[in-house]
């Protein structure tokens, strides 16, 4: 599969897109990826704070994530007091808590840094769980409407 994407996306002269050589094919290009040099400083900072070579972050990185989590929680509680939200409250809360969920799972539980196996296991379980329980809720909701 990875071979397929290599052939599709990278033009090293051997794939399906037999394009001429570019500066990206230098032995050690400065920056790869779709955004080129634009995000290089960001990426460098990212690598420093996450200590990406060691498969986990630095303490300050975790403190940063903790701060973001706190801020999201404060925003949630603040948005809760905002009476005019009405029907938007539930989607907003779901999105915010999803963000918290992903931050904890991705960084505190190291899924972002760890082998992809673990992420697959957890994601597969989440997909089955969410799938069947959403189906269950829909079924019961629907059943109630037909009774009335």
């Amino acid at each position: 599969m990875s071979n397929f994407w290599n052939k599709l996306l990278y033009h090293e002269g051997r794939g399906w897109w037999d394009l001429p050589r570019t500066q990206w094919q230098d032995p050690n290009p400065q920056m790869e990826g779709p955004f080129g040099h634009g995000i290089a400083p960001i990426k460098r900072t990212w690598e420093i704070i996450t200590a990406a070579n060691y498969h986990h972050g630095t303490p300050w990185f975790y403190v940063l994530i903790g701060a973001i989590l706190s801020i999201i929680t404060i925003v949630e509680v603040w948005a809760f007091t905002w009476e005019t939200l009405g029907g938007l409250l539930i989607p907003l809360m779901l999105v915010l808590s999803l963000a918290k969920f992903i931050l904890v799972v991705g960084f505190f539980m190291h899924l972002k840094f760890d082998r992809k196996y673990y992420a697959w296991i957890f994601t597969a379980c989440m997909i089955i769980g969410i799938g069947i329980f959403v189906a269950l809720l829909l079924l019961l909701e629907y059943g109630n409407q037909t009774q009335q």
Partner: peptide, 15 residues
């Protein structure tokens, strides 16, 4: 908030 911070403490302990 307390539980979130305990999670932060946990990841620091491991580190």
């Amino acid at each position: 908030f307390v539980l979130l911070m305990s999670s932060l403490a946990m990841v620091l302990a491991l580190s």
